[in-house]
Design a protein around this nucleic acid. Structure first.
Length: 1085
RNA sequence: GCACACGUGGCGUAAUUGGUAGCCGCGCCAGACUUAGGAUCUGGUCCGCAAGGGUGGGGGUUCGAGUCCCUUCGUGUGUACCA
C-alpha cells in the first residue's frame, strides 16, 4: 500500500483535536515541562516556511518530553495588537479587529496543518478584553509602585506615602526623577492634591513625564529605541525625529543592575546575553564637579577616565544642557542660540547621516580645573548626549577619539597624559590613544602610576576634596510606554483636574472604544480622542448604563453587540412574565421613594429591575433558573463587583405574596441608603480617559504567565498555578527580540516577583534562538531593447544567431538586460517552467524566450528576505500539499543546525520524503502490512539501540539535523537487513514520533495499538547490544592515520601493543627506527 | 568603529570531550526495471595513476589540531557619538 500522507495527516490531526490529546494537566503528579514558542504577530501575509522552524523544534521537544513522562505545557496564542492591522485599517477603513481575526484564522489553519501538539484550549490573544484586562491591571500595579533602593525592590506606593506623611522624603532612597525637591512631613500635609500627585509621579514606576522621544510623524507615534533601525522606523521605514513630549514611561532603569546580573544564571545563548549586556551598557566611572569661573555655577560631568583629569583641555555640554543659557556670554549669544536651535531640530536621521560632521560652538565661559585651577573653555557640541550621564563631558582629546576629532576641528589644545607601555610611543599613535594601558605623565600627583592605579588614586583624591564621587551609569533608558495609536490596550487612567488616576480593578477592563477613523484628530490628539462619550464615570455616584449612556466598560465596545443587547432588553420589556408584571406594578404603586427601571443594561448584563440611585438590583427567577444557579451566582458577583447589590425572588414568591416581597425590598433599601450625586459629580460628571494606548510589548511581557491559567477571571493567573508551572523550561525564538521583548519580559517578571505576585524572577530558564530562513529569489533577464524578449542566463553574453536576430528584431547582438523577479514556484533548480511563465502574467503570454542549447531557460538567483514583492515566498502549505507535513517537519530540521540562519532551498526535500517512504516500506510486504513477532538479530538490535542512543543525545542537545540523518542511517540499515520485526520497529516509531508524528501514529495503530503513540514510553538504550567482538583500530604515526588493524575486543592494552608492534605494516612505517612514545587512546577515556 | 558568531567536497551539512576528516541528503556518474520519466531500485562519487595531499591564509601549542592560542583575510548578525 502506498504511503498516503494526505489522508494519514488529516485523520490524525482530527484525532488529536477531537481527543484533546495535548491538553496540559494543571493537577498532575508528573514532573512539569513548559515549552514556549515565540509569540506570533498574525500578519496578513500568513506563515512562510521560515516561521515554523522554531515551532517544529519546540514541538519535537514537547512530544519528546511527553514520551519521557513529563506533564507538558505547550501553548500558542497571538500578539494580536499592533501596527500593521492598524495601518491596514487606516487605508481601507476595515476594523483592525476584523483584519486581525481573519489573519488569525489563516495562521491557525496553517499551524494545524503542520501537526503541532499545542494545547489550543489555552490560546490567548492580547487584543482580547479578557486578556488585556490583566495587562491593564499589571500596568496599574506598576503605576502604584516605587523602587526602593534600600530593599532593592519595587514596593507599593502606599508605603512611600506613609513615609512621606511621617518623615517627608529625607530618608527615602528611591530610584526616581533626578530633580525631586526635598520636603518635610509638615510640607507634605500642606500640599494640594495636584502637588502630591506630581511628587508621587516622580517616584512611580509607571510615570507620566516629559521626555525626548523618537517621534515618527508618518506613524503618528513615538518609537522605542529598539523600534528604530538606521534612523528610520523599523516598520515602514519612515523618518524619525526628536520631540519633547509628555509620555507614559516605565522605570526599567531601576532594574538595570538586576537585569544585568540576572543574565549570569540564565541558560541563554551567549550572543543574546551579550546583546542585552550591551544594551544595558553599564559603565563605571566618576562624577566630577567643575566650578565655573567667576560664577556660582558648577558643571557636573561623568567620566570613566578620572586618571586623565590633567589632560582636560575643554568641557563640552549637550545643546539641551540646562546651563547653556546661563553660561553663554553676550558676545556668543547669537551663535549659541542658533546652534542650539539647529541641533534640537536635527532629526535622528540627519544625525545618523552626517555622523562624522563635527559641529559645536564656544560659550565664552570657563571652568576652573579642580587641581590646577587653570581656566578651561566651555563648549557646546551635539556629540554629547543630553540623556546620558550628566549631559556634559570633560574632554581629554589626547585619550578619547571623539574629543580628539572635536579638538582637531576647532584647534583646541591636546594634552597627553598617558604614555603607552606597549612598544608604540605616543608620537607614533595616530589620533588619540584610547587604550586603558600605560603610565601617567604630565599629571602632578599621578605621574608614574599605571592607568589602573592612577584611576584609584584620582578617585580617592576627588572624593577627599569633595569634588565628586564614583558613579555607575547605564546606557539603558526608561521605556516609553504610550503610543498615539488606536489598536492597542487603552491605558487605564483618567484625568480629574489634570491629575491622573488609575481605574480600580473592578472597573477593568477599560475596553477599547469604537472610533470613526483610525487617525489622529484635527488637533493632533490620538485616535482614541475621537471616541465620543468615552469618558470615565465614577461608578459610585452616577447612573450606569441605560439606553442613552453606554457603560464605559462595555465589552468589546462594539456598537453592534451593544445594540443587540439593547434590542433584547426592549423586547423583554414588552414581553414581561406574569410575576414581573405584578412586581413592576407593585414597586411603582407602593411609593418606595426610589425610581426603578426595568430590563436595564448594566455592564454586559440586562437586569430585571434596578434602582440606580441605591444600586439595588431585583431579579426575578423563573423556573428556568433552577438549573442556572451557577450562572446566576456569577452574574451576582459581576454586579456586586461594580457596586450593585442583588435581591432575588422566585415567580411563586411574587405571585403568592407580593406584600411580603415588597417589605423585603423595603428592608433591603434601608440597608442601602440612597447615594445622591453631590458636588462636582452632580449629574454624573465624567472625566477624560488617557488617549494613548500601550505599546506592543505590554501584552507580550506576561503572556507566558497567562498560559498557566488562561481562563482565570479573578486574577492574571493564580499563584497555585504559577507555582506549579513556574518558569518556562525552554523558549525558542528569534534573536530579533533580544533588546526589546526579551528585556521587557524580564523586567515585568522581576517586578511581579518583587510585589509577591509570582515566585520566579526570570521568565525562561533556557532560551534558544532559531536562525532565520531567508528566501531565494529567481530572476529572468529581460531585453531592454525589446521588452518582449527574455534571455536565459547562459546566453546573456553570447551572440545571437541570424535567425534569432530576425525574431527579436535587432540588427546586432548588442543589447542590455535587466533582471526581474520571477515567481520561484514556477522555477525548479533554476530552470524556468516556460509554459507556466507564459501563463503567469498576461503580458508574458507571447514572450520570446532565448534558451540554452538544450532548450532550457535558466534563471539567475539571489538570497533575499522572503517577501511577496520578490515572488520568493514559499509557504508551508505548498510543501505540505506536495510532500506532507511530516516531510516538511523533517526537512526543516534536516536543513542544518537550528540556530544557524539558512537559505530556503527545496533541493534536498526528495531525500527526506524518500526516507519516509522507505520507513513505510519496512512495514509492508507485497502490499500487505506485515510485522512479525520474530526474535531480532544481534545486528538489528545494534542498529536500533545505536539509534536510540544517538537520538536521545541529539534531542537533548537540540541537534535536530543530526538526528534526522541518524534516522536515515537506521532505516537504511534495517532495509538492508530486511527487518520487519515488531521488537525493532515499534521502538523506532516512538523515537521518530516527535519528528514525524502522523506517519508514526498511523503505523503504530496499524501495529495494533489502540492508544495514541503520544504517551508511549521512550525506549532506553541497552549498551550491551552495542558491544563488539572485535574492533578495527586505526594506527597512526606522528598523528597521521596510516592503516587499520582489526583485533579482538577482549585484548588487553599490552597485548594490543604487542600485536600492533609486531605487524609487518608497522615495521614498514618505522623504517627500522624505534618509536619515541606509544600512545593508546580508548573510547570514553 | 566596536561586540559577537561563522569560514570543511559542486551544494546543505557531519565529526558531543583535541584522537580514523567528509556521516546523511542533494547533485552528478554508471547500471537495473521501463513506451516514457522530474517514478522506483542498485552501485560509485574530496583531490591525486600512485606515494601522498587536503578543513579561508600565515604562525604557534601538542605524540596528535577542523576543534585550543596568536595573527590576517572574508562573510553574517547586533550596535552605534554612551564620555
Amino acid at each position: 500500500m502506498e504511503y498516503n500522507f494526505k489522508e494519514i495527516e488529516e485523520n490524525w490531526q482530527k484525532f488529536w483535536a477531537d481527543n484533546k490529546t495535548f491538553a496540559a494537566n494543571d493537577d498532575s503528579t508528573k514532573e512539569k515541562y513548559y515549552v514556549l514558542d515565540m509569540f506570533p504577530y498574525p500578519s496578513g501575509a500568513g506563515l512562510h516556511v521560515g516561521h515554523p522552524l522554531g515551532y517544529i523544534a519546540s514541538d519535537i521537544i514537547a512530544r519528546f518530553k511527553r514520551h519521557k513522562g513529563f506533564n507538558v505545557l505547550h501553548p500558542m496564542g497571538y500578539d494580536s495588537f499592533g501596527l500593521p492591522a492598524e495601518q491596514y485599517a487606516i487605508q481601507t477603513g476595515q476594523h483592525p479587529k476584523i483584519t486581525t481575526e481573519n489573519n488569525i484564522a489563516v495562521y491557525r489553519k496553517q499551524l494545524d496543518k503542520i501537526g503541532f501538539s499545542f494545547d489550543w484550549d489555552r490560546e490567548v490573544r492580547t487584543s482580547n478584553p479578557d486578556y488585556y484586562k490583566w495587562t491593564q491591571w499589571i500596568f496599574i500595579q506598576i503605576f502604584n509602585s516605587w523602587y526602593n533602593k534600600n530593599t532593592n525592590k519595587a514596593e507599593t506606593i502606599s508605603s512611600l506615602i506613609s513615609e512621606f506623611e511621617a518623615n517627608g522624603n529625607a530618608n527615602i532612597n528611591a530610584h526616581c526623577d533626578d530633580d525631586v525637591k526635598s520636603f518635610t512631613a509638615q510640607q507634605w500635609q500642606t500640599f494640594s492634591e495636584k502637588e502630591k500627585s506630581d511628587v508621587l509621579m516622580a517616584y512611580r514606576m509607571a510615570y507620566l513625564g516629559e521626555a525626548y522621544v523618537n517621534w515618527c510623524p508618518q506613524l503618528g507615534t513615538p518609537l522605542a529605541n529598539d523600534e528604530i533601525k538606521d534612523g528610520v522606523s523599523e516598520r515602514g521605514g519612515y523618518p524619525v525625529e526628536r520631540k519633547l513630549m509628555k509620555q507614559w514611561s516605565m522605570r526599567i532603569t531601576a532594574y538595570a543592575q538586576r537585569l544585568l546580573t540576572g543574565l549570569d544564571k540564565l541558560d541563554w545563548t551567549d550572543s543574546l546575553k551579550e546583546a542585552q549586556r550591551n544594551w544595558i551598557g553599564k559603565s563605571e566611572g566618576t562624577s566630577l564637579k567643575f566650578k565655573v569661573a567667576n560664577s556660582s555655577f558648577d558643571i557636573e560631568v561623568f567620566t570613566t577616565r578620572p586618571d586623565t583629569i590633567f589632560g582636560v583641555s575643554f568641557v563640552t555640554l549637550a545643546p539641551e544642557h540646562e546651563l547653556v543659557n546661563s553660561l553663554t556670554t553676550p558676545e556668543n549669544k547669537v551663535n549659541v542660540e542658533a546652534y542650539v536651535t539647529q541641533a534640537k531640530n536635527r532629526s535622528e536621521r540627519e544625525r545618523q547621516a552626517d555622523i562624522n560632521k563635527i559641529t559645536g560652538v564656544p560659550t565664552g565661559s570657563f571652568v576652573e580645573h579642580p587641581f590646577t585651577g587653570k581656566h578651561i573653555p566651555i563648549w557646546i557640541g551635539d556629540y554629547v548626549l543630553a540623556g546620558y550621564g550628566t549631559g556634559a563631558v570633560m574632554a581629554v582629546p589626547a585619550h578619547d577619539s571623539r574629543d580628539y576629532s572635536f579638538a582637531k576641528h576647532f584647534g583646541l589644545p591636546i594634552l597627553e597624559v598617558v604614555e603607552p607601555t606597549s612598544n608604540v610611543t605616543l608620537s607614533e599613535v595616530e589620533g588619540s590613544y584610547d587604550a586603558k594601558e600605560g603610565k601617567l605623565i604630565n599629571s602632578d600627583f599621578l605621574n608614574g602610576l599605571d592607568v589602573k592605579a592612577a584611576m584609584k588614586k584620582a578617585i580617592a583624591e576627588i572624593e577627599t576634596k569633595n569634588l565628586g564621587k564614583g558613579k555607575v551609569n547605564f546606557r539603558l533608558r526608561d521605556a516609553v510606554f504610550g503610543r498615539q495609536r488606536y489598536w492597542g490596550e487603552p491605558i487605564p487612567i483618567y484625568y480629574k483636574n489634570d491629575i491622573p488616576y488609575a481605574l480600580s480593578e473592578s472597573e477593568l477592563p477599560l475596553v477599547l472604544p469604537e472610533v470613526d477613523k483610525y487617525l489622529p484628530t484635527e488637533d493632533g490628539e490620538p485616535p482614541l480622542a475621537r471616541a465620543t462619550n468615552w469618558r470615565y464615570r465614577p461608578l459610585s455616584n452616577s447612573p450606569q448604563g441605560g439606553e442613552n449612556t453606554k457603560p464605559h466598560n462595555w465589552e468589546t465596545a462594539g456598537d453592534s453587540s451593544y445594540n443587540f443587547t439593547k434590542e433584547k432588553a426592549q423586547e423583554l420589556r414588552k414581553n414581561q412574565t406574569e410575576a414581573e408584571q405584578i412586581l413592576w406594578e407593585a414597586i411603582r404603586k407602593k411609593s418606595l421613594d426610589v425610581k426603578f427601571r426595568r430590563q436595564h443594561i448594566i455592564g454586559s448584563n440586562t437586569v430585571d429591575f434596578v434602582s440606580l440611585e441605591t444600586k439595588l438590583v431585583i431579579e426575578v427567577d423563573g423556573k428556568i433558573h433552577l438549573d442556572k444557579k451557577e450562572y446566576d451566582a456569577e452574574r451576582t458577583k459581576e454586579l456586586e463587583s461594580v457596586g450593585f447589590s442583588v435581591i432575588r425572588f422566585t415567580n411563586e414568591e411574587i405571585t403568592n405574596d407580593i406584600e411580603n416581597v415588597i417589605s423585603k425590598i423595603k428592608l433591603k433599601l434601608e440597608e442601602f441608603p440612597k447615594v445622591l450625586p453631590s458636588g462636582e459629580d452632580l449629574g454624573g460628571a465624567s472625566y477624560p480617559f488617557e488617549h494613548s494606548t500601550m505599546p506592543g510589548w505590554a501584552g507580550s511581557s506576561w503572556y507566558f504567565l497567562r498560559y498557566m491559567d488562561p481562563h482565570n477571571g479573578s486574577g492574571f493567573a493564580s499563584i497555585k498555578l504559577t507555582d506549579y508551572w513556574k518558569q518556562v523550561d525552554l523558549y525558542i525564538g528569534g534573536s530579533e527580540h533580544a533588546t526589546g521583548h526579551l528585556l521587557y519580559v524580564r523586567f515585568w517578571t522581576k517586578f511581579l516577583n518583587d510585589l509577591g505576585h509570582i515566585a520566579i524572577d526570570e521568565p525562561a530558564k533556557k532560551l534558544i534562538n532559531q536562525g532565520m530562513i531567508q528566501g531565494r529569489s529567481n530572476f529572468v533577464y529581460r531585453m531592454k531593447e525589446n521588452q518582449n524578449v527574455f534571455v536565459s542566463k547562459g546566453r546573456a553574453n553570447r551572440d545571437l544567431t541570424e535567425e534569432e536576430l530576425n525574431v527579436v528584431g535587432l540588427k546586432t547582438s548588442e543589447f542590455d538586460l535587466i533582471a526581474i523577479h520571477v515567481d520561484v514556484n514556477i522555477v525548479k533548480n533554476d530552470v524556468l517552467d516556460q509554459d507556466a511563465f507564459r501563463s503567469w502574467r498576461e503580458e508574458y503570454k507571447n514572450a520570446i524566450l532565448l534558451c540554452e542549447d538544450n532548450n532550457e531557460f535558466l534563471c539567475s538567483h539571489e538570497v533575499e528576505k522572503m517577501s511577496k514583492s520578490k515572488y520568493n515566498v514559499v509557504t508551508p502549505d505548498d510543501i505540505a500539499e506536495k510532500f506532507g507535513s511530516d516531510t516538511l517537519r523533517l526537512y526543516e530540521m534536516f536543513l542544518g543546525p537550528l540556530e544557524q540562519s539558512k537559505h530556503w532551498n527545496t533541493n534536498g526535500i526528495t531525500g527526506v520524503h524518500g526516507f519516509l517512504k522507505k520507513l513505510w516500506r519496512l512495514f509492508y510486504q507485497n502490499d500487505t502490512f506485515t510485522v512479525t513477532h520474530d526474535e531480532p538479530t544481534k545486528a538489528e538490535l545494534k542498529t536500533l539501540h545505536k539509534t536510540i542512543k544517538k537520538i536521545t543525545e541529539d534531542i537533548e542537545r537540540f541537534s535536530f539535523n543530526t538526528s534526522v540523518s541518524n534516522f536515515m542511517i537506521c532505516v537504511n540499515e534495517l532495509g538492508d537487513q530486511k527487518c520487519n520485526k515488531r521488537a525493532i520497529l515499534e521502538p523506532l516509531l516512538i523515537c521518530l514520533s516527535p519528528y514525524a508524528p502522523h506517519i508514526t501514529e498511523e503505523l503504530w495503530s496499524l501495529c495494533g495499538h489502540t492508544e495514541s503513540i503520544v504517551f508511549a514510553e521512550f525506549p532506553h538504550c541497552n549498551e550491551t547490544y552495542l558491544v563488539e567482538d572485535s574492533f578495527t583500530y586505526p594506527i597512526s604515526f606522528n598523528g597521521k592515520m596510516r592503516f587499520n588493524m582489526e583485533l579482538s575486543a577482549t585484548l588487553t592494552v599490552p597485548e594490543i601493543e604487542k600485536e600492533v608492534m609486531s605487524s609487518e605494516e608497522v615495521q614498514k612505517y618505522l623504517e627500522g627506527k624505534t618509536p619515541k612514545k606509544i600512545i593508546e587512546i580508548f573510547k570514553n577515556s
